[in-house]
Simulated scan of single mutants.
Amino acid sequence: MWRELASEYPEVELRDPVGPDALTAIEEQLGQPLPAPLRELLMETDGIEASYGTEVVWTAEKTLEENHAFRNNEQFRNLYMPFESLMFFGDNGGGDQFAFVRTPARDEIFVWDHETDSRTWVASSLESYLRSALGRDGEDWYR
């Protein structure tokens, strides 16, 4: 499903799928399950890159690295609200990050604004997020 959806848009780069063991490792290391839609997407393509190199959906490896970094950065702890309730999975190329809320678990997509630390709802589902992120020009489609 996810490869077909992404292939509707020109200039989208898809990758080989990631195995379930890598996804289980992410869940174990972050201490929370991946959202089912994200897990399914990564098992079809390990991330989605749009035009100009925007990582609309990160690779499994980057998802783990970025979430770990956000949760363990001492400077971030002093500047921002906690990140443990979010699972970041993509960005706009300009600093804002997209995430699922994990506590309580929700399938809706939120954006974290790196300048204001706001966390704002932007899409009702991963599918809706992808259609918006891939189908609109410019990095600020969600504003």
Rank of each mutant, 00 (worst) to 15 (best):
N78F: 05
R119C: 04
D16K: 14
D96Y: 10
F88A: 10
E13I: 11
L42W: 15
K62V: 12
G53F: 07
L41F: 08
M43N: 08
R119Q: 07
D96M: 07
S118H: 08
I26S: 00
F83R: 04
V57R: 05
W112S: 00
I109W: 11
V57M: 04
F100D: 06
N72M: 14
Y80L: 04
A60P: 11
P37K: 09
Q75W: 13
Q29S: 14
H68V: 08
P82I: 03
D21H: 06
K62Q: 14
F76P: 05
A50Y: 12
F98C: 03
D113C: 11
E115T: 13
Q97C: 06
Y9F: 15
A105T: 01
Y80K: 01
N78S: 13
Y9H: 13
L30N: 02
R71Y: 03
L41E: 10
E55N: 15
L126F: 09
S7Y: 02
W121V: 06
D46C: 04
A36H: 06
E115K: 06
G53N: 05
L64N: 09
F70G: 02
D107L: 10
I48S: 06
F110P: 00
S85P: 04
L41A: 11
R71L: 05
A22L: 07
D96S: 08
T45N: 10
A25P: 00
E61T: 13
A25Y: 01
A99E: 12
E127H: 09
T45P: 10
D16N: 14
E8T: 01
L130S: 06
E49G: 00
S85F: 11
T54I: 15
E28Y: 04
Q97G: 03
R15Y: 14
R77C: 03
K62N: 12
F88C: 09
Y52H: 15
F110C: 10
G93R: 06
G31H: 09
A123Y: 01
N92T: 13
Y9P: 11
E28K: 14
F110Q: 07
F83Y: 07
T120W: 00
V57C: 10
T63M: 04
P20N: 10
E28P: 00
E49P: 00
P35V: 00
V111I: 14
V12I: 12
Y80Q: 03
G31V: 11
A99T: 09
D16E: 15
S124T: 07
D113M: 06
M43D: 04
R131Y: 10
H114R: 02
G95M: 15
F88N: 03
Y9V: 08
F88I: 15
